[in-house]
Amino acid sequence: MYQFFVRRILWMGLVMVMVSIITFLLMHQVPGGPFDREKALPERIQKNLEKKYHLDDPLLKQYLDYMYYAFIPRVTTGEWKPLPENDHLINLKLPIGDNAYIRWMNFGPSIKSASRTVNDIFRDNFPVSAKLGGAAVAIACLIGMPLGTLAAIRKNTIFDYLGMGIAVLGVSLPIVTLGPLLRYIVGVELGLLPPTGWGTLEQMIMPSFTLGFASSALIARLTRASLLQVLDEDYIRTARAKGLREQLVITRHAMKNAMIPVVTVLGPLIAALITGTFVTEIVFGIPGMGKYFVTSIGGRDYPVIMGTILIYAFFLVFANFIVDIVYAWLDPRIRLS
C-alpha cells in the first residue's frame, strides 16, 4: 500500500517532466512568436522584447530556468518588491532571520498581459473554472446515472428509448450550438436568466447545465451498457436466487461493479472540466481558465502555454490516481499493489 503511493507519486513527477519537455519543444517548434503582429514590429523592438522575456537565451537554458523557478523552492531574505518576476504561488515565512521566506512555484509572466503573471491566472481564473466544472460534473452525474440505470433495468421499454434518446441528443448537440441557443431563448427572449456573466447563482445555471448535459449523455450510455453486462453475471443470479428484492440487487450488488467503467471516464472528465472549457466560457462570458488554453497558443504566450498545460496534466494524473484508489474500493478483487 505504502509502496504503491510512493511509486505512483514518483511516476506522476516523471509524467509531468515529460509533458513539460514535449510542450516546451513543440511550442518553440511552431513558426511565429509572441511578438508577431498584424503590424510587424521593427527588429530592434523585437530584440528588446526578446531580451526582456529572456527569449534570446538558448532553448536549453530557457527550459532549465523555467523548471528551476517553477519547481525548486528557494529561500529569500530582505526586501521583496511586488514585481511580476517575484510572484510565487507559495510564500511561507521562516522563523529565522529578517524577512526570510520559502518561496515556491513561479510560473513566469504572461507575455500578453504585462501586469499579470501565470500565477495570477491560476489564482483568479482557475477557481472560476473549477466551480463551473464541478457543477457541470455534478449535473452530468445527476442526469446521466439515473437515466442510464433506468434504461438498463427497464430495457427495451419506453424508459430505455426515452433515456437513450436524451443521451443521443446530448451527444449530437454540441456546446457551441446548445450554448447560444439557451442563451438566446432563456436569456434574451424569455428573460429568465442573465445571458452572460459569472458570480451569482442565476448566472451559473445555464453554463453548468450546458456543460453538464453533453457529458451526462456519455455517462448515461456507459451506465446502461455496464449495468446490463453486470446484471447477467452469476453473482447477480445468486443474489436473486437467495430471494433478495430486485431493488436491493441493483443498489447493493450490481451498481457498485457497474460503476467501474463510469469512474474510469469520470477521472479524466473531471480533470478536463475543472481546468476550463473554451467554448462554454466564451459563449457565457465566464472569466475562467479555459480560453487561455487556446488564446495562449494563438498568441505564442510561452509561459501561459506551459502553465496551462502543466496544470491540466497535473489534474489528469492526479484524477487517474484517485480513480485507481476508487477501483479498489468498488471491487475488492482489485488490489493496490
Partner: peptide
C-alpha cells in the same frame, strides 16, 4: 466595460443589459 465575444454582447444588448 464588459469583455464579451461578439454574439454574447449582442445577447446582452438585446436583453437590455
Amino acid at each position: 466595460f464588459l469583455l464579451l465575444e461578439q454574439s454574447a454582447k449582442l445577447a446582452e444588448y438585446e436583453a437590455g443589459n
